Amino acid sequence: MSALAPPARAGVPGPARTGRRRRPRAARSPWLHVAMIPVTLLWLSPIVFVLFVAIRSYDDIAGRGLGAFPASFSTEGFTTALTDGGVLQSLGNSVLVTAWAVLASLALSSVAAYALSRFDIPGRRTILLTMLAGNLLPPQILLVPVAAITEAFGIADTRTALIIVQVGFGIGFYTFVLHGFMRSLPTEVFEAARLDGAGPGGIFWRIVLPLSRPSLAALAALATTWIFNDLIWAMTVLRTEDKFPITAALLNLQGGYASAWNVVAAGSLIAAVPTAIVFFMFQKQFVSGLLVGANK
């Protein structure tokens, strides 16, 4: 005689009744947004102040002071910075140097990271640590050697020398970051590609580079910011003002227009536009690149 199951009580599910348990919804507190409002305003206050100075005329600043609220709108500062200040030409130099330096740095570092992460190279850990250790040296102690090397090779006072210096001092960090990402890629993907007859070059071009796109985009945004805003290597390598990047041009602009703060502020805002555009273009990829490996 088989045992009968006791009848299910009202409101209590029986053995046959199964249901998915609802997870409690996390409460979203508005206090975080409230606390971030003053932090955001504090962060944006210097930019707003520079913007207010840039849209004021020289007479307004001289008569009412630098911290006064704008009494009128004027594009005098932007016009002077773009024409007489040489900001437009220097901006083109910065864009040219940054574009070539970023492309060369990421191309060389991606190949180096692929070789160090996927091939049994003798002393590869030592090579990687040596490349990374080069970025830990203070750039101030390397100014004289870098200037002497560029003079010895006959490339001093050229944009090519500045590009080479930027690539040389950035490739170690980029290789270190890409090496960690490429090493975490599944080995099964590479084994399947080898079974399909793909060689090392084909695997790198068709598999590794597409999978490394988030990391490459994040590094591209960082490298663009670092190279575009660099001043120390530009002043070390270059001598001619026509070849100066935007940072060196702003330094000269501040010296030539010491009392015209609207011109200096306008030039600073113009110099900040390219890096802001790059960040907003790669914002999604930048965040994805920072979170690579967080769910592994």
Rank of each mutant, 00 (worst) to 15 (best):
V102R: 00
A99E: 01
G134T: 04
T98F: 01
R20G: 09
G255F: 12
L116T: 05
R9W: 01
S109Q: 06
V34D: 05
K284M: 09
G293R: 01
A99P: 02
S110D: 05
A161L: 04
K296Q: 08
K243D: 04
A3V: 14
A8P: 03
L66S: 09
R21C: 00
I141C: 10
S45E: 08
A258I: 12
I37C: 10
G267Q: 03
S2R: 14
E241W: 07
I232Y: 13
L269D: 03
L290R: 08
L143E: 04
A266P: 03
P139W: 12
G123K: 09
D60A: 13
R22S: 13
I246A: 04
A198F: 08
A112C: 12
V263H: 05
F228R: 07
R183G: 11
I277E: 06
G11N: 11
A294F: 11
F49Y: 14
A294C: 07
F69D: 07
L66Y: 10
A115K: 02
K284W: 06
L32C: 08
E191H: 11
L219N: 05
R56E: 01
G256S: 14
L116A: 04
L44H: 10
A113Y: 02
S259G: 11
L129G: 06
G172V: 06
P145H: 05
I164H: 00
T175F: 01
D157N: 15
E191T: 11
L178Y: 04
S29N: 13
R9G: 12
V87H: 03
V39R: 08
A218Y: 02
W31C: 03
W43P: 00
S94I: 00
V102Q: 04
I163L: 04
L143W: 03
T225P: 00
P13G: 02
L178S: 05
W226C: 00
G134K: 02
A249T: 12
